[in-house]
Each structure stands twice: as C-alpha cells, then as structure tokens.
C-alpha cells in the first residue's frame, strides 16, 4: 500500500519535495492555490547569482512531478489531525486522508505601498522587484530610455515599523542582479543601488557585486527616505550617503523597490487550523533550530522552504529534500511496523 502524502504549496519547495517523495514511491498529492505551479519562481525572469533563466529551473522541477497528483487553483479548506493521519478537504471538493503533510506555503511579497514615503502605486515610475522581473520576462523596454534608475534594498525588511525587523536575505543579491541587467539594457543610464548593508553572503554573490561595480553601478550606503515627482514627471529621490555623512538627492526615471518576504497568508490559514505556532516574525517555528528544522511540533506535519523564514532557492531545495527524507523516516517508523 502506498502512503498518501499531502504537499501544500506548489512553489519550488513543494515541487522539489513532491518529486523526491514520488521517486521514493509515495502517493503525493499537491495542492496549489494559484492557477500555475512554480510560485514566485514562475514570475521571475533570471536568477542570481549567474542569471540562470528561471524557466529552466522551473522546467526541471516540473519534470520531476509527473507522477504527482497536482491540484491547481485549489485551497485547503479545512485540515485536521485524526488519530494519526490528516484529513484535508480541498476547495475542489476532494477529501484526502494523508499520513504526512508537508507545508510548503512559502512567502508573500511585502506590500510595497505600505512604505508610503516611496509612493508605490502613486508615482508612475516606482515599481517593485517583481514588477521588474515581469518587465524582463516579457521583454518589455522602457520608452523613452531611462537616464537614471535606482534600486532600493530592504523595502519592508529590517524595518520594525513595517512589521518586519528581519532581513529578507535575497533582496541584496536580487537588486545587484537587476541593476546589472538594467545597465546591460541601458548602458548610458546612471544606475544606483541604495543599501544599508550589502549582504552578499552566498557563493558567487560577491562576484556579482564586483561585476556591478565594474559596470559602473553606484552603490550608496543609505536608505531612501522619500520619493516625489518633479514637474517633468520624473522621480526626486532623497537619501543620505552615510559614508560621507551628507544628504543626497538624485532625479531618476525609475525606482525599483526590493520588496521583502512576509509569511504567506494562505499558509497562516492552514497553520491556524492545526494550531501551528509562529514566531515573532510571523513565520512558522520549527521544532528546533538545528536538528529538527523540517519538523513542526505536530507529528506528521513538516515544513520546507520560506514558510519558516526567508530563504534563497538553493536553501529551499535543500530543505525540500531534507523534508522528504524526514517524511520517509516518519512513515517508515510509524506506518510500516
């Protein structure tokens, strides 16, 4: 008999874990609330640090889930723990009895309009990292060619007032990547990155930073304080260049806000039904921070990916595979004696 495993969330974590579990011989059912699989990855154009096309990675993931039963545009309406299995009712009317559940609900992007001073949704030239990826993906160009473009790191991250004191981990590398791509498209444009600390921690990230510097991208250590529109409809941006301890202003055609990661609302909905605990940052808490990262406090319920905090894609894939291993061990110990 094949055990049923329910995977909630069809982003990179859910897809990779589903692929591994299905290779192990489990009967994997995946529920994804959106129309298409892939989560934020499906909306991205290229990935840091080496500009691998996001589609390539997504295609690889989709290749692995041929034997997985996928339900898209499907919410988990209710879920509860019976004796030792989970009973889940999906919004498509299907009820699933699963011996283990993997919660891979990922993250929501911080709503950039909450940082009112940046004028997202008010000033035409202000956009987010996700908007920028869409522009790249659809091969659109800005017309007329922009003379100056800025990138703001830490939008809704490291910001207590915005409700998120933590670092979102991926924004620095994303900003630098997008800045390079912008400079490649518009070599004449002045490109600025406004950062508080540059957190280029991963392998090859520092190379990306150096590449950006060599391309002539200007890094300004200081957070943008406010944005306004000039009489020509361009953006006047104010910040401090904290390295010279002086305020700066610059006129830009576009300002790209690196919206950070917030816990997924859909994930919280599932979490509330199972009484899963979240930490102060709103992300789910693992059973411990070292040896049981993929385990929740509930037996049979596991985590993978950004539902336990901001993560890069490689981190997410490691977690997805670890979670699959943990689930396999759990099933073997509890259901096959």
């Amino acid at each position: 008999m094949k055990n049923n495993i329910l995977v909630i969330g069809g982003g990179p974590a859910g897809l990779e874990a589903s692929a591994v579990l299905s290779r192990m011989g489990y009967n994997v059912i995946l529920a994804e609330k959106e129309k298409r699989l892939g989560g934020h990855l499906a909306k991205w154009d290229r990935l840091f640090p080496d500009q691998t096309p996001a589609k390539e990675v997504l295609d690889g993931l989709l290749d692995g889930i041929k034997d997985v039963k996928c339900f898209t545009e499907t919410d988990v309406n209710s879920i509860n723990l019976l004796d030792r299995s989970f009973n889940a009712m999906l919004s498509n009317g299907i009820t699933i009895l699963a011996d283990a559940v993997l919660l891979a609900s990922g993250f929501d992007m911080f709503k950039a309009e909450k940082k009112e001073e940046y004028g997202y949704g008010i000033y035409d030239g202000v956009m987010t990292n996700a908007d920028m990826e869409q522009v790249f993906r659809e091969g659109k160009t800005f017309s007329p060619a922009p003379k100056a473009i800025g990138f703001v790191h830490c939008v809704g991250s490291r910001d207590e007032k915005a409700g998120n004191p933590a670092c979102s981990k991926v924004c620095c590398a994303t900003a630098v990547k997008q800045a390079i791509e912008t400079k490649e498209l518009y070599p004449e444009a002045n490109v600025y990155c406004f950062y508080m600390d540059l957190r280029m921690f991963g392998r090859h990230y520092e190379d990306l930073y150096l590449r950006a510097q060599k391309a002539g991208i200007r890094f300004i250590r200081g957070r943008v304080s406010e944005v306004a529109e000039t009489s020509e409809g361009r953006l006047l941006v104010k910040a401090e260049d904290t390295l010279s301890s002086r305020p700066v202003k610059v006129t830009l055609d576009r300002l790209v806000l690196m919206a950070g990661m917030r816990p997924s609302e859909a994930g919280h909905k599932v979490g509330r039904q199972l009484n899963l605990s979240v930490e102060e940052d709103g992300f789910f808490s693992s059973r411990d921070g070292f040896l049981s990262l993929q385990k929740s406090k509930l037996p049979g319920l596991f985590y993978a990916g950004a539902c336990t905090g901001p993560k890069t894609l490689p981190d997410t894939f490691h977690e997805a595979r670890s979670a699959a291993m943990e689930i396999d061990r759990y099933i073997k110990e509890n259901f096959r004696k």
């Binding site: 002045n190 600025y192 002086r246 305020p247 700066v248 202003k249 610059v250 006129t251």
Partner: peptide, 15 residues
C-alpha cells in the same frame, strides 16, 4: 546646503 545633488556630478570626467 550640505546636500549633494547627484544630478550635477560630472559623469564624463569620471568615465
């Protein structure tokens, strides 16, 4: 004013 106006920075010379 102590404010730096980056619009006025001489890009040609820097290049």
């Amino acid at each position: 004013s102590s404010r730096i106006n980056l619009d006025k920075a001489d890009k040609e010379k820097f290049l």
